[in-house]
Design a protein around this nucleic acid. Structure first.
Length: 570
RNA sequence: GCGCCCGUAGCUCAGCCGGAUAGAGCAACGGACUUCUAAUCCGUAGGUCGCAGGUUCGAAUCCUGCCGGGCGUACCA
């Protein structure tokens, strides 16, 4: 039906990308033939129709052209379709539908042959080149080293970690970093808190606890630890004591944080210390302040140095150096981001809790003042997490909340469920984390649902392996056998997997991977229940095993991206 | 007051860089295991997409204004 097309079609990993040039070329030809008069071609948008009856892909180009062409969309559609040429064997049918959609029906045998993309290099399937050659500096978690990670940090950790994996799968080079706020007030507060607990619990003295101190139980444990007592024991001088106590408490807490993260399968390339900004290779904070001063972006008022950020989109100006000469946290952050920019990455992504959103404009303002491209700086704000148990909200108090600790939740529901649940919502939505559901080993639990689909395929192959020849040549799907509508959909969705990964990377939205996996698992479970794979005639069983293999590959790769295990039996 | 996020089925949420009849899971109800794992599947029911305007051939999606919820609004981080 369609003659071989003259222009080379490259092997593209993303199915949709095969389709775009068909429309682009048809548009050009229609224009060359005088059927269309528009100067500029609108961006070709390919979507998946809401209904199978409308085909595999649809394009709205005829409707977007209607105004410029001053013609009815249906007529434009016809003129485009008239000049349609597609790669050999790809398209089975083209139909024009009501308002002006052009719908493509792909050839099942083409899809079947394309499964080779999956089978020939299974580990790489899903990878795409949308970020090839670009680099991302990804900073996440960065919880203050003043206490253990809580569940909100866990969400940020999962989000950042999976975003990193998704970006890497899309060709980006990713640098993962944890910024340690180990300078400033909070360490002093930590020191005072530890000091008070030490005197209370270890020395048995009656002292008052600092008003804004960290009340958590973990401080008591730190203070009792051998490391702490060794480090601090002999000191009499209060100042020296506080300095030592703060330092060792921070170290112990950081060790705990790192341990929790490793247990949670999250790793960093670099742990960047805020205090190193002041001491390594000169004082970077002073340098950044000086640079801003040189640009005349600072002024003095009430003895403090203020950043004139209100002229750069911030609500008001901000203090950078206090009246007593100590820099604020913002000063550190300016220096820190300035250093990031000096490393020359293409994108800088920070993941912050939603409660920090008001902080972004001032950082952005400072970067602009220093001449950096603020377009390259993206901050993802992750909304809060609340816990639910027995159908009721778990009350979380910062004072004595044991439940909200990440490690406690991970211990209770497991790493797989915790990670999966954190990624079942878009970052913008407050997450209600149902502990009972996460623990449940049933179909109601989406983690098990997806993992079970994988285990099912594995079981199928164990069964098939008992017959010698059955597993031979599974990298060569046979055409002409996978003719069911559900097989067509399954093949198409499998082949679209790289597009899911790409979307997640482009939008910085890892949850698309989670939803994609659930959808695929659902599709496979339904297919499996309706159709037998083993024991059919030789060709059919072979083809269906190929298909099952592809399902296995995509589920495995997707779960890998989420950092969730893909069990072979359950 | 101002700023950011959210408001979609009873509940939890997708869809939101405009498209076709608004989806899924759970809960409710009814079915499917001598057959590749029933941790599964099939079916039924369930909706003024917070409200009101505007832009458009076309709006859950974009704009404006309201209402409701969360968060923020430090010389804390």
């Amino acid at each position: 039906m369609f003659p071989r097309f003259g222009v080379l079609f490259f092997e593209v990993s993303v199915l949709k990308e095969l389709v775009v040039p068909i429309f682009e070329n048809a548009f050009e030809r229609a224009r060359a033939a005088g059927d269309l008069t528009s100067e500029e071609m609108p961006a070709v948008v390919i979507e998946t129709p809401p209904n199978e009856a409308f085909g595999d892909f649809s394009c709205n180009i005829a409707m977007t052209l209607a105004r410029a062409e001053r013609k009815a969309p249906l007529m434009i559609a016809e003129q485009i379709v008239k000049h349609f040429e597609a790669p050999e064997g790809l398209v089975k049918d083209v139909r024009i539908e009501k308002p002006g959609f052009i719908n493509l029906y792909l050839d099942g045998d083409y899809l079947c042959a394309k499964l080779k993309d999956i089978l020939s290099a299974p580990d790489d399937f899903g990878r795409n080149e949308s970020g090839a050659g670009k680099s991302v500096y990804l900073e996440f978690v960065s919880a203050n080293p003043t206490g253990p990670l809580h569940i909100g940090h866990g969400r940020g950790a999962a989000l950042g970690d999976v975003l990193g994996r998704v970006l890497e799968a899309s060709g980006f080079r990713v640098h993962r970093e944890y910024y340690i706020n180990d300078a400033g007030n909070q360490i002093e507060t930590l020191a005072k808190s530890a000091c008070a607990r030490y005197l209370q619990d270890v020395k048995g003295e009656t002292v008052s606890f600092p008003e804004d101190g960290y009340q958590g139980e973990y401080i008591r444990e730190i203070v009792k630890s051998a490391e702490f007592r060794e480090c601090v024991g002999a000191l009499r001088d209060e100042e020296a004591f506080l300095a030592q106590a703060g330092g060792i408490a921070k170290e112990l807490i950081l060790e705990d944080i790192e341990k929790s993260l490793i247990e949670f399968r999250v790793r960093f390339d670099e742990w960047f210390s805020e205090s190193s900004l002041f001491s390594e290779n000169g004082n970077k904070v002073e340098e950044a302040v000086a640079a801003l001063e040189a640009n005349e972006k600072l002024y003095e008022k009430d003895g403090a140095k203020w950043l004139a950020s209100s002229a750069y989109g911030d609500e008001k100006d901000r203090v950078v150096v206090r009246d007593d000469g100590r820099p604020t946290y913002l000063a550190s952050d300016i220096a820190y981001h300035n250093l990031k920019y000096e490393r020359g990455f293409d994108h800088y992504i920070n993941i912050w809790g939603a409660d920090h959103h008001g902080y972004l404009p001032r950082v952005r303002a400072a970067m602009e003042m220093l001449g950096h491209d603020t377009e390259k700086l993206d901050v993802l704000f992750v909304q809060f997490v609340s816990l639910r148990r027995g159908g009721e909200a778990v009350q979380m108090s910062t004072r004595s909340g044991e439940f909200e600790e990440l490690s406690a939740v991970v211990d209770e529901v497991g790493v797989d469920a915790a990670r999966f649940f954190f990624l079942m919502r878009s970052a913008d939505t407050a997450l209600e984390f149902d502990l009972d559901l996460a623990k449940e080993q049933s179909s109601e639990n989406p983690v098990y649902y997806v993992q079970y689909a994988h285990a099912r395929v594995c079981s199928l192959f164990r069964q098939a392996g008992e017959e010698d020849k059955l597993l031979d040549g599974l990298n060569e799907p046979m055409p002409g056998v996978l003719v069911l509508a559900e097989e067509h959909q399954l093949m198409k969705n499998l082949l679209e997997w790289p597009d899911v990964v790409r979307t997640a990377a482009e939008r910085f939205e890892p949850h698309h991977v989670t939803f994609g996996l659930i959808a695929l698992a659902k599709q496979f479970h339904a297919y499996y229940n309706r159709n037998r794979i083993l024991g059919q005639d030789e060709k059919l069983t072979h083809a269906r095993l190929c298909l099952a293999k592809c399902v296995q590959v995509v589920l495995k790769n997707g779960l890998d991206l989420l950092g969730v295990s893909a069990p072979e039996e359950m």
